[in-house]
C-alpha cells in the first residue's frame, strides 16, 4: 500500500491534521537537503514534498524560484533528487515523499525510466505542476502500474466539471491551491476557501491538502478547519535560505519552524473555532 494512503488513512481515523512541508531539493546542497528532510520527519512532518528544481518554474513565486536557481547552481538534477530520496529511505521507511516539479526535466529523463527509478528510490507520488488532467495520460500510464500516485492541483477557478476531471486523474490526495497566485504570494483568506473546498469535497473522495500562501501557524490552523492537510512551502524555503546565509544549525531552525505549526494543527480548539 502506498505510504500516502497509509498516513491519510490513519489520520482520518485519529482526527489528525497532516502537515506537509515543501523544500527544494539541492537548495544548500544535497547534504543540506538530506539533513533537512530528516529533521522535518523528526519534527512532525507527515509527508515531505520535495521540489525538483527547474530553470523556468512559472507557477512559483520569487522565493521558490531563487531556491531553484541555487539548487541548479549547486548541480542538482533528477538523478540527484532520486539519490536524496534513496538516502532518506535508508533511515526512514514510513514518511511519504512527494516529488513536485515541472514536466520538461522528467520528460527529458524519460517518463517510464523516471517512474521506475522513482519507485525504486522510495518515492510515493509525483506532482507535475504543468501537467493538468488533459495532458496527463502518458504520465498516468507509467505511474499507475508502479503504485505511484499522481497528485493533482485544484484551483479556486476550477469548475465542478474540472474538479471531477481532476479527481478522476488524481491519486493520494488533491492539492487545493488556496489563492489565485504563485507560490508564496499574498496572504490567506480563510473565508474565501470555504465554498470551493465544499465543492471539491463533493467531487472527490480523496483527502484534500491546501497550499499556497500559508505562512503562519494561524494560517495553518485556519486551513486545517477545512482541509485534511496543510502544505507549507515558501515560508519554509525562505527560512532555509536564511539558515544557509547565516550558517545556523538546520536541525534547530527546523525544530523552531515546525513546533508552532504542529501545535496549531494538533490543538483540540481547532474543532470548535
Amino acid at each position: 500500500m502506498n505510504r500516502i494512503d497509509q498516513v491519510f488513512g490513519q489520520a482520518r481515523k485519529q482526527g489528525h491534521k497532516l502537515l506537509i512541508p515543501f523544500i527544494t531539493a539541492g537548495d544548500g546542497g544535497a547534504a543540506f537537503t538530506l539533513q533537512v528532510m530528516r529533521a522535518l520527519a523528526d519534527e512532525g512532518a507527515d509527508v515531505i514534498e520535495l521540489g525538483m528544481p527547474f530553470s523556468d518554474p512559472m507557477a512559483d513565486g520569487p522565493v521558490v524560484q531563487k531556491a531553484c536557481e541555487r539548487a541548479l547552481a549547486a548541480g542538482m538534477n533528477l538523478r540527484g533528487v532520486l539519490e536524496l530520496v534513496r538516502q532518506f529511505r535508508s533511515r526512514n521507511t514510513h514518511t511519504p515523499v512527494v516529488l513536485m516539479g515541472y514536466l520538461n526535466p522528467v520528460w527529458r529523463y524519460g517518463l517510464q525510466a523516471f517512474a521506475t527509478d522513482a519507485a525504486a528510490a522510495g518515492v510515493d507520488a509525483l506532482l507535475i505542476v504543468d501537467a493538468p488532467p488533459e495532458e496527463s495520460a502518458d504520465l498516468h500510464a507509467v505511474l499507475q502500474p508502479l503504485d505511484l500516485h499522481q497528485i493533482m492541483l485544484a484551483a479556486p477557478t476550477s469548475s465542478d466539471q474540472r474538479l471531477q476531471l481532476i479527481s478522476a486523474a488524481a491519486g493520494g490526495f488533491v492539492y487545493y491551491v488556496a489563492l489565485k497566485g504563485v507560490t508564496g504570494a499574498a496572504s490567506l483568506d480563510g473565508q474565501a476557501m470555504v465554498e470551493p473546498l465544499q465543492r471539491l469535497r463533493r467531487c472527490t473522495k480523496l483527502p484534500i491538502a491546501v497550499g499556497f500562501g500559508i505562512k503562519t501557524a494561524a494560517d495553518a490552523a485556519t486551513v486545517a478547519e477545512h482541509a485534511d492537510a496543510v502544505v507549507i512551502g515558501s515560508a519554509l524555503v525562505q527560512v532555509l535560505a536564511e539558515c544557509q546565509q547565516q550558517r545556523s544549525e538546520p536541525d534547530r531552525v527546523i525544530a523552531d519552524f515546525m513546533a508552532p505549526l504542529r501545535a496549531a494543527l494538533d490543538a483540540p480548539v481547532l474543532l470548535t473555532s
Binding site: 512559472m58 507557477a59 514536466l103 505542476v129 504543468d130 501537467a131 493538468p132 488533459e134 495532458e135 493533482m152 492541483l153 485544484a154 484551483a155 477557478t157 476550477s158 469548475s159 474540472r162 481532476i166 491551491v177 489565485k180 497566485g181
Partner: peptide, 12 residues
Amino acid sequence: GGSFVSETLMTG
C-alpha cells in the same frame, strides 16, 4: 502544442 500549464490557468 496542448495546454501544459498549472490548473490555476486552465479555466482562464
